[in-house]
Design a protein around this nucleic acid. Structure first.
Lengths: 233, 233
DNA sequence: AAATCCAATATTGTCGACAATCTAACTTGA
DNA sequence: TCAAGTTAGATTGTCGACAATATTGGATTT
């Protein structure tokens, strides 16, 4: 079985092969190019990427640490298979951590960044008004409201955990269950309320609103996945 | 320079060398046998453990994922050097996550486990009354109240993150700053209050109390470390 | 025909060696 | 004397090969 991989290390920019492979593999898994639950064959991938098994194995170990693959001794690695419970657990952690991030942001975010974020939300608003497609369009770029709040927390460990570990899993699931929030305008309103609280330095309120916001998304996810599971039976 | 390591793989029980090395290295770092900030020399450690560099490198990559070492390409790995900010950041995450764990535990903990925990706290009380040493004695074993709450959350991802990633760093710092909570009886009282809230299925309260409890520990840590830093200048 | 056992094959785990890069000591020049 | 440049040494990154384990397929027995 030939997995559709972009190509043989088109351009390697990292200092080490292992890092490059890790990045490309991670991207391939998150994008869904390597499907969930599929086996990671070392000889096959080594040939596809044109490297030896050494750095490839290091990359796989790294991905295991990020929670994208699971390994069993003498058997090998498989891409994780997301189920509803895993996603709900992840959202519960997001609720706790991003709630805390919002609280911290309310303490420390400079007025300039607050203004930038208001502009960003205006941009999102305009996008919603223009396009009819009901996509909120915040696929993890620098325009993602949540990422901006997370970075505003200035807690390095929290930032790393959320952006590098949790969010890769979340993006992964988004590919497979074409969720896309059912009501993007509601989400935008909630974002505004959170930002208002931050602008007023109301940490308690900011945390409460962020948690409610994520909890709501979690509920929607649960309904969507239960529905799709029911449909497939 | 010869690092004091227990010995050459006295008994390997894991299926793979790499896992064994990772476990032994992790333990050595947390215990302080390999001091903070020191360089991880691959040839040296490979000889000490009696393995080749292959599995050793995989172990180092794993430790990097756990946040115990940092690596720079073509230079090597160093044991992390904990500073006050890192510890405060870690405690902030604990506050968010263990607060959430307490909330979840209040929902789902069975009455039997609640009773077990009351017994555990009684045991801690007796220990404090007997021994004069002001050690609360909860060094991460099964008698650790916090670990029991964390597991009661039944959130697999949260459990893994707290027990495998955050707590190793916390134990590591405990070795180096001989902190040991200044008032263990106060801590025990707080534990009782948290457990009461859980027993009554008051999730909001359990979360609030747990967060306050950890926040207080964080304050004590901050004072202690600032004091010790001032003393060393 | 189904289940068990066994051999052949493929895959993972480990090793030693080579290439690329960094580090440290020495030399050279101002 | 100090700084920059250079060279020798050591360390990390990568590779191909071998050993150990798991998987697959067929043969054998009931």
């Amino acid at each position: 079985m030939s997995i559709p991989v972009s190509s043989h290390l088109v351009s390697l920019r990292s200092a080490t092969l292992s890092e490059d492979i890790a990045q490309q593999l991670s991207s391939a898994i998150v994008k869904g190019d390597i499907p969930q639950g599929s086996k990671i064959s070392e000889p096959e991938l080594a040939k596809q990427y044109g490297v030896s098994r050494g750095p490839l194995r290091e990359a796989i170990v790294k991905l295991e640490g990020l929670g994208l693959v699971t390994r069993t001794a003498n058997v090998g690695a498989r891409v994780i298979q997301l189920n509803l419970q895993d996603m709900l657990d992840t959202f519960t952690m997001r609720e706790a951590l991003e709630g805390m991030a919002a609280r911290l942001a309310a303490d420390t975010m400079p007025a300039s960044e607050v203004n930038n974020l208001y502009d960003l939300l205006d941009k999102h608003q305009a996008h919603l008004d223009d396009n009819q497609d009901e996509h909120y369009l915040q696929q993890g770029g620098n325009d993602d409201f949540h990422l901006r709040i997370i970075h505003a927390s200035q807690n390095a460990k929290l930032i790393r955990l959320l952006t590098e570990e949790l969010y890769s899993v979340i993006r992964m699931y988004r590919r497979h269950t074409a969720d896309q929030r059912s009501d993007p305008r509601q989400a935008l309103r909630e974002h505004r309320a959170i930002l208002d609280a931050i602008a007023n330095h109301e940490g308690d309120l900011a945390e409460l609103l962020m948690r409610r916001h994520i909890s709501r998304a979690s509920q929607l996810l649960k309904q969507a996945m239960e529905h799709s599971e029911r449909a497939s039976h």
